[in-house]
Amino acid sequence: MSTPEENKRIVRAFLETVFNQHEIDEGMDAYVGETYTQHNPNVADGVEAFRENFKETFAENPESYFDIKRMFCEGNHVTVHAHWTQNKDDRGSAVMDIFRLEDGRIVEHWDVIQPIPEHIAHDNTMF
């Protein structure tokens, strides 16, 4: 099993390559296993479904950016708290992703996405 630091490095590299550089094929080939179990209800299961979904997403949102705020690792699960925006005018969403790795490859994913409202009931940020 990989160390927690190695697992976080793999997930960070995957997110940077796919979600910030929009190099989907390169990121999937380098960091994702042959099988990819998806738990997001809006994205179909599997490697090819992920590729197609995000090629379309990034074609529609070429300025999309995933700003990682913090990462946690327990065993082969890495959790990421991030601010995801689609363009410079977008307030974006607070995202919590959980990735499961096997043999140094991402094989499973869960997420919770919360849009950032215009007004919040306190002076804290969502990050």
Rank of each mutant, 00 (worst) to 15 (best):
A59Q: 14
R105S: 01
E6I: 09
E26V: 13
I10L: 06
F66K: 10
N124I: 02
N124H: 08
Q114R: 08
N42M: 11
I106L: 04
Y36I: 03
T125F: 09
A121M: 10
D123Q: 11
S2G: 03
H39W: 06
T85G: 03
R12S: 13
I98A: 10
A94P: 00
E6S: 11
V18S: 01
R12G: 05
K55E: 12
T79E: 10
M28V: 15
S93H: 11
V47G: 01
A44H: 12
D29C: 05
V32T: 07
T37F: 10
E52S: 13
T79K: 06
D97V: 06
N124W: 06
Y65C: 12
P62V: 04
N76Q: 15
Q21T: 07
D67R: 14
K55D: 12
H122T: 14
N7Q: 09
W110L: 08
T85F: 00
D111R: 08
G104K: 05
I68K: 04
Y31P: 02
S64W: 01
E34C: 04
W84G: 08
D67M: 10
I98N: 09
F54V: 09
N87D: 15
E63K: 13
P41A: 09
A44C: 03
V112R: 05
L101F: 05
P62K: 07
A49D: 10
K88F: 00
E63P: 04
I68V: 15
R105G: 04
K88Q: 13
I10R: 02
M126T: 08
A94I: 02
V95E: 03
T37R: 14
T37G: 07
D103V: 00
F50M: 12
E102A: 12
N53R: 14
K69C: 00
E26D: 11
N53M: 05
H122F: 03
F99R: 10
V11R: 02
T79R: 09
T37I: 13
A121K: 12
P4A: 03
N87Q: 10
V95I: 15
V80P: 01
E48V: 09
P115R: 09
Q38D: 09
M28S: 01
R70N: 13
N20K: 06
T85H: 08
F14K: 04
A49M: 07
D45N: 15
H39D: 07
P62A: 11
K8E: 10
W110T: 05
E48S: 13
P4F: 07
A82I: 06
F14P: 02
E34Y: 04
K69N: 08
A30H: 04
E23A: 15
D29V: 04
N20M: 03
N76A: 14
D29S: 14
G46Y: 11
T125Q: 03
A49R: 08
R9M: 07
A49E: 11
A44N: 14
N40A: 15
G104P: 09
G27Y: 04
D25R: 15
A13F: 00
M28H: 01
E56R: 14
E6F: 06
H77I: 15
I106F: 04
F19I: 02
T85A: 08
M96Y: 11
T57N: 08
M1V: 03
I24A: 02
I24K: 01
Q114V: 08
N76I: 02
Q86M: 14
E118W: 01
F19T: 01
R9C: 02
V11P: 03
V47D: 01
M28D: 01
